[in-house]
Design a protein around this nucleic acid. Structure first.
Length: 81
DNA sequence: GGTGAGCGG
């Protein structure tokens, strides 16, 4: 399942994002969206979890959770189609 | 660079 994560602190990186979700289940990959010009975080990212039930549980538990002093927002990612 | 809603390389 693809997961959208927003309101992240700019210093959070893909590896940190992955660790955050790993405490609630298996994480296949995690990616912070970086600005292509500055190379800095855009403040949001995506996480892929192979187990849908763990993914949904992680969304519920990590949404509005405090990470590095910021309250993050976690949702299902939009389908690509 | 930031308070609201956001959906990518």
């Amino acid at each position: 399942m693809n997961i959208f994560v927003a309101n992240l602190n700019y210093k959070i990186q893909s590896e940190q994002l992955k660790e955050i979700f790993e405490e609630f289940g298996e994480v296949e990959s995690a990616k912070i969206i970086m600005d292509r010009n500055t190379g800095r975080s855009k403040g949001f990212g995506f996480v892929e979890m192979p187990d849908d039930q763990q993914a949904l549980a992680a969304i519920e538990k990590l949404n509005e959770a405090e990470v590095d002093g910021r309250t993050i927002v976690v949702k299902k990612a939009n389908p690509k189609d």
